[in-house]
Structures are given as structure tokens and as C-alpha cells.
Design a protein around this nucleic acid. Sequence first.
DNA 1: GGTAGACCTGGACGC
DNA 2: GCGTCCAGGTCTACC
Length: 333
Amino acid sequence: MPRMTINVPPDYSLVRDCCSYGYFLLAPNRWDVGSQALSRVLTLPTRSVFVVVCQPGGRGSPLRVVVWPDEVASSAAERAAIKEALTRMLRLDESVGTLRAFHALDPRWKESGRGRLFRSPSMFEDVIKTVTNCNVTWHGTVQMNRHICEALGPRVRFTVRGIERTEYGFPSAKKVAGTRVQTLRARCRVGYRDARIVELGKRFAKPASKGGFDQAMAADPVTPDDVVRETLLDLPGIGPYAAANILQLLGRFGHLPLDTESVRHGTTVLKFRGSSKAIMERVRRHFAPFGEHAFRSYWFELWEFYESKLGPAHLWERDSTGKMFTAALLNKE
DNA sequence: GGTAGACCTGGACGC
DNA sequence: GCGTCCAGGTCTACC
């Protein structure tokens, strides 16, 4: 089977930096607790492949990537595409200087080295995952992503030690754009999000020159956050929470996606009192001093709380987290 | 500009 | 097993 290695920054830890944001638990991503490896289908320009990523040498050592199906050795172009996708997902290109600046501002995370946040190989997948995370419990989000992959995603068949396996990837914007609204609702269980998701597919499938969403503009660090935010708010299904979340997924950490979890955190951990609206505002002000790193400070505080309740994230099983993240469990003393 | 209510799904609960 | 209630963010209509 084709193998490749990817060099990482000296402080990089797959266990810590992959299991750093909830999307590592959403299909088609799968974190294998036993082998401490991430696997998923990646869609390359030429075909879709199934990859397994691990870091046998621990922190700072190269990532080892195994690619299936193995009947065709992956070309240099394919290896480059795999590396590009994993670099985005695992934030391998996050500059050491940026993380140092974050740790100087919020030293709580200096020892653990936390700073990178997992994301998807494409902005489109991040946007859809964010829409499936709105107005629904975590269990619902897990289910929707699984159904979307199984119903619409590219299928990869391969054989491992004589056993045939089938894995599903995340559908392209073009595939989603061409899907009937009714199909999305019936087979993916996305409810009223159906038409919005299809419209998002259309916007992302269309080139920016023809009125499609300008991904290059959004990804360009030169574009001001507020300009990107306004553009995101124009997309169907994207409100203030979703826009702020997509901003952090784009590497813009100055905005907080405030939701009911923020209120729970403000109440139970920060001991704020008042209406939901007032608590959200206090949470926002509380993290404002962290400036362009506000979301990182907020998120790792939240993540640390989750781990205190549920154990280390690298031991979470994807299929059982739906029942783990319940208000009853998180509010339990 | 602010707010109420609808939009869906699936889990919890009572009967 | 069935019915009811509830959680969750966005969108629209209305004030």
C-alpha cells in the first residue's frame, strides 16, 4: 500500500491538535481511539482515496499516511493534494510565531501547547458542518453528517487483508448543488436546512466571477474580518453564530460564536448571572482582552471543561459522543 | 432595531 | 407504543 510521510512543526502533536475541535468527530472523519489515528476519505482532483494518518514517533515527528485503494500507486500530484488537504485540516501551516503570540497573551495553554484547531479539508465542508451544527443537539449534528456522507458522498472501495471495505467521503459542492431538496431532507435528515444546504452547494460550486461565493477572498488574510463576516451573513442558513464559527475555521479567531453553550459556560464556569442575552454579552466582554486570539482562549477553556467531564478528547469514540454532549451531563456537578 | 413565532429532528418523559 | 414537550440558531413578519 502506498505510504507517505509529512513533516510537521517541532511542537506538533497529532493527538492534541487533531482532537481539538468537535469536527474531528463528524463524518467522514474518524478518530480511532485504539490506534490514535485519524482516517477519512479525501477527494482529490483525480479520484477519492481513503487515508489513515498517525504519528508513531509522537510530538514533532513526521506524520505517517497510508493511502487506499492500493492497486494504483498514488502519483506525485496526488501526494501533493493529500498533503494540502491534511495541512488545512490539521493546521500544519499555523505559524509558530502566531502560537507564541497566543501563549504570551494567554499563558494557560503554553505548557500543553494548545493553539491549533481542527477543521475540514475544504471551506465548503466547514460551512455545511456549521449549518448542521445550528439549532440541533450534537447527536443530531453527528447523524446529519453521517447521512450526508452515506447518501451523497464519494464512495471508495478497497480491500484490507482480504476484507472488502467501503468508505464514504464528504460530497462536493457540485454534488450537493445537483441534489434535490426532498432527497436531502428524506435521506440526510437535515429537516428545514434542506433548501439552504442545496443553495449553499450552488453558491460554492459557482465560480466567484459568475456570482458564486468568493472563497479566495474569504481565505485571503488581507481581507478584513468584517468584510468576510458580511459576505458570510449573506449566505443562506448563516446567522451571527455560524458566521463567527466559520471565521474561526478560516483562521480568524477574533470573534466568538455565541450560542447556548456560551450561556452554559458563562453560568456554570464563569459564574455569571442574568438573562441569556446578558450572559452572552458578559462572555464576549470577558474574552475581548484576548483580541485576535479570543476564540482560542474561549474554546480551550470550553474544551478543558468538556475533558474534565468526559475524559481526554483523544479517547472519545465518535459514535458515543452524541450521547455524551447533553446538557444534563455537562451541568452535572 | 427589537422581538415573537415558525422551522425540523430526535430524545426524554408520562401514560 | 403513542402523544407531548423540549432543545437548538436562523429567518421572516410585525411592531
